[in-house]
Amino acid sequence: MDPVSNTPSMPDRASRRDTALRDAAKELEAGFLAEMLKSAGLGETSESFGGGPGEEQFSSFLVQEQARAMVEGGGIGLAESLYNALKEREK
């Protein structure tokens, strides 16, 4: 915090912007992975022992969270590539 103007200093502002940019890149990667997981058949209800309509309605949430967990575990590198490309555009 800048004591004179009582506003966040430049490094704090840049750090928050970088964090927000990295979070957005991770969400984009998670969305991409979720779509790929759906295309691979993850989240489809099984014929036997299916969970009924509730399982069908909430399976997309499970797939999205599994994709987020994959990103937090390192993902496929898409978030890092997006982040770096967006940082280059800022310069």
Rank of each mutant, 00 (worst) to 15 (best):
M1N: 11
D12K: 07
G54E: 00
L42G: 03
E44Q: 14
A25N: 10
E27M: 08
E88V: 01
V4Y: 08
L33N: 08
K26T: 02
E44H: 08
M70S: 14
Q57R: 15
E72M: 11
K26W: 00
P53T: 09
S81I: 01
P53H: 10
D2S: 02
E80P: 01
P11W: 11
D23W: 02
A24C: 06
E56I: 15
R17N: 00
R13S: 05
A24Y: 06
N6D: 13
G51L: 14
A67V: 10
R13V: 13
G31N: 14
G74C: 07
K38Q: 05
A79S: 12
A20T: 15
G52H: 09
P3E: 10
E35M: 01
S81D: 01
R13A: 03
P8L: 12
E29C: 01
A40M: 15
E44K: 15
G77H: 00
G41N: 12
K91I: 00
G74Y: 06
K26R: 13
M70W: 05
G75W: 00
G77V: 01
L78Y: 11
V63E: 12
V63T: 15
A14I: 11
L78I: 13
L33R: 03
G52D: 12
T7Y: 04
L62R: 05
G73Q: 04
Q57L: 15
G74H: 06
V71H: 04
S9A: 11
E27Q: 05
A67M: 07
E88L: 02
S48V: 09
S59F: 05
V71T: 11
T19Q: 13
E56Q: 12
G52R: 13
M10R: 15
K91E: 02
S5W: 12
L82M: 14
E55Y: 02
G74A: 07
Y83W: 03
P11L: 09
F49G: 05
A24S: 08
D12S: 04
R68T: 09
G75V: 04
A20M: 15
Q66K: 11
D2M: 03
E72L: 13
G50K: 01
T7F: 02
E44S: 11
G43T: 04
L78M: 13
P3R: 12
K87P: 01
D12E: 09
I76R: 09
D18V: 00
V71G: 12
E56H: 14
G54D: 06
M10E: 06
F61V: 04
E88H: 04
V4G: 00
A30G: 10
V63I: 13
K87H: 00
S59M: 13
A85L: 03
K26N: 07
E88Q: 09
M10N: 05
A34M: 08
F49N: 12
E90N: 06
V71E: 10
E56R: 13
R16F: 01
A69D: 05
E47R: 09
G54Q: 02
V4N: 08
E47D: 04
E65P: 04
E80R: 11
G54K: 02
Y83F: 12
S39K: 14
I76Q: 05
L62Q: 07
L82G: 10
V63P: 13
G41W: 11
A85Y: 01
E72N: 07
I76E: 04
T19D: 14
